Computed example of a mutant assay.
Amino acid sequence: MRLNQPRVHPLSNDGQTPEQAEVLASLGGGGVIPAGPVLNIFRTMAHAPSALKAFLTWGNYILSKRNDLPAREREIVILRTGYLCRSGYEWTQHVEIGLRCGLTPDEIVRLKAGPEAGWSPADAALIRAADELNADHFISDATWAALLSHFTEKQAMDVVFTAGQYTQVSMILNTFGVQLDPGQTLDPDLRKT
Rank of each mutant, 00 (worst) to 15 (best):
R86I: 00
T162S: 01
Y89N: 05
F138N: 11
L39M: 12
A135G: 11
N134V: 04
V77C: 13
V95W: 10
K53N: 15
Y89Q: 07
N13Q: 09
Y89P: 02
L63Q: 11
T57A: 13
A142R: 10
M1S: 06
L173A: 08
Q168M: 15
D187E: 05
A129W: 09
L79S: 04
Q20G: 09
V159D: 03
A135H: 13
S12W: 02
P70I: 00
F42R: 08
G114E: 08
D136E: 12
E107V: 00
L133V: 07
L173N: 11
Q5Y: 10
I139Q: 08
M45V: 01
R43Q: 12
A71P: 08
D14V: 08
G88Q: 06
G183D: 09
A35N: 13
S64V: 06
K192R: 15
N60D: 13
F55C: 03
V169P: 03
G82C: 10
M1E: 02
R128S: 12
P18A: 11
F176M: 14
V23D: 08
A124N: 12
K65E: 14
E90T: 12
D106A: 14
L133I: 10
R2D: 02
N134Q: 14
S87V: 00
S12E: 12
G164D: 08
F151I: 02
I41R: 13
H9E: 12
F161G: 02
G36S: 13
R100S: 14
T167M: 10
A51Y: 10
A156H: 07
V95E: 15
D181R: 10
P182H: 10
C101S: 14
G98M: 04
A124S: 11
D189T: 02
V160E: 05
Q16G: 03
Q93E: 11
I33V: 15
D68K: 14
G183T: 06
W119I: 01
P105Y: 09
R80K: 07
E19H: 12
T185H: 12
D136R: 15
C101W: 05
N60E: 13
L24N: 08
N4Q: 08
W144H: 10
A130N: 07
R43V: 01
R80A: 09
K154P: 00
F176V: 02
N40M: 00
R43Y: 04
E153L: 06
Y83C: 00
P37R: 11
P10M: 02
I172L: 14
P18M: 07
R128Y: 03
N67F: 04
P18F: 11
R110T: 02
A35C: 04
L84S: 07
S50E: 15
V159T: 08
W144P: 01
G30S: 03
A125C: 04
F42N: 13
Q5G: 00
G118P: 07
A35K: 15
D141P: 05
K192E: 02
P49M: 09
L99A: 05
G29K: 15
K112W: 02
Q5E: 13
L180W: 08
P18Q: 14
L3Q: 01
K192N: 06
F151K: 06
T152M: 03
S26R: 15
P115M: 04
Y89A: 01
W58K: 08
A117I: 01
S149K: 06
D68L: 13
W58M: 14
